[in-house]
Amino acid sequence: MVEFAQTLVNGLVLGALYSLVALGLTLIYGVMGLANFAQGEFAMIGGFSAFFLVQEGVSYPLAVVIGFAVAGIIGLLVHLLAFYPLRQSNHINMMLSSLGVSLFLVNLAQYLFSPNPQVVKSPLSGESFNLGGIFISQQRVLIVVISFILCLATFLLLKHTKFGRSVQAASLDPDTATLYGVPTKRISFMTFILGVALTGIAGALLAPVYNVYPTMGISLTLKAFVVVVLGGMGNVSGAIAGGVIVGLIESFAGGYISTGFQDAIVFTVLFVVLILKPQGILTKVQGEKV
C-alpha cells in the first residue's frame, strides 16, 4: 500500500514538472505554429544560470527568478535570429530551425561550461517530508507548488487579460486577428519569450534535484512533446492534464511493469494516441475552418 501511494506521489510530482515544461511548448505552438525542439535547452539555460548565481552567493529563490529572466532574454535573441526571419515560410522550416537552435545551444554550453554535471544547492536540498512512510523531498514539493501557481497564472492570463485574448485570437487565426488590429507579430514575440522563460524556471527548479549539464534538456523536450501531443497541440489545459497523465503512466509503468521498459511504454501510449486521436485527447475535433 505504501509502495502504491509512493508510486502515485512520484507520478504526480513528475507530472507537475512535465506540465510546466509542456506549458511553454504548447503556448508557443499555439501562437507561432512552431514545434520548438529547443524547448528543453531553455531549461538547461535556466539551470545553468541558477548554478552560476548560487555559486556567486545569490540566494536560491532569487536565482530561480533571474533564471526566468535569463531564459527570456536568450529566448528573445533566439527568436530574432532563428525564427523571426522565417516567419513567412513553411512551419516545417521553423521546426528544423528549432532543431538547429537546440544543437547549437547544447554545443555552446558544452564549450563554455564543459560537459560535466554541476550541483546546485538549494536550501531544501536533502530535506524530505515523511508522511507515514511516504517520502517526498521538499524541493519536489516546491516544484509542484510553483508549477501549479504558474500553470494557473498562465491559464488566467489567457482567459482574463487583453494580452491573453490577443494570444487566443492570434492562435485561432492570425490573419483575421491582424485585420481586427491584434498586433500578432508582437504577440508572437511575447508568447515565445513567456513560453521559454517558463521552461527556464522549470530548469532552475529542477537543478537541485537533477544536477545541471548541457544535454539535460534533450530528454525534457521529448517528454514535453509527448505531453503536448497527448493533450492536444496548442491546448493549455491539455498540456497540464497531459503532464500529469504522462507522469503517472511513467511512474506506474516503472513500478508495476518494468523499469527497463518505462520509456518504451510511455512512447507506446503516444503512438496509440497519435493513431486513434491525433488531435490530442483533450481537443474536440474541429470542423475545417474556411
Binding site: G33, F37, I92, M95, F225, V229, M233, L270, Q279
Partner: peptide, 24 residues
C-alpha cells in the same frame, strides 16, 4: 487548417522518434 495541424502532429511524432534514437 485542421488538416495541416494533423500533418504537423504526425511530423512531430516522427521527429520525436528520431530524436529519441539520437538522444543517447
Amino acid at each position: 487548417m485542421n488538416k495541416w495541424r494533423l500533418k504537423t502532429v504526425g511530423m512531430c511524432g516522427t521527429a520525436i522518434l528520431v530524436l529519441s534514437l539520437l538522444n543517447a
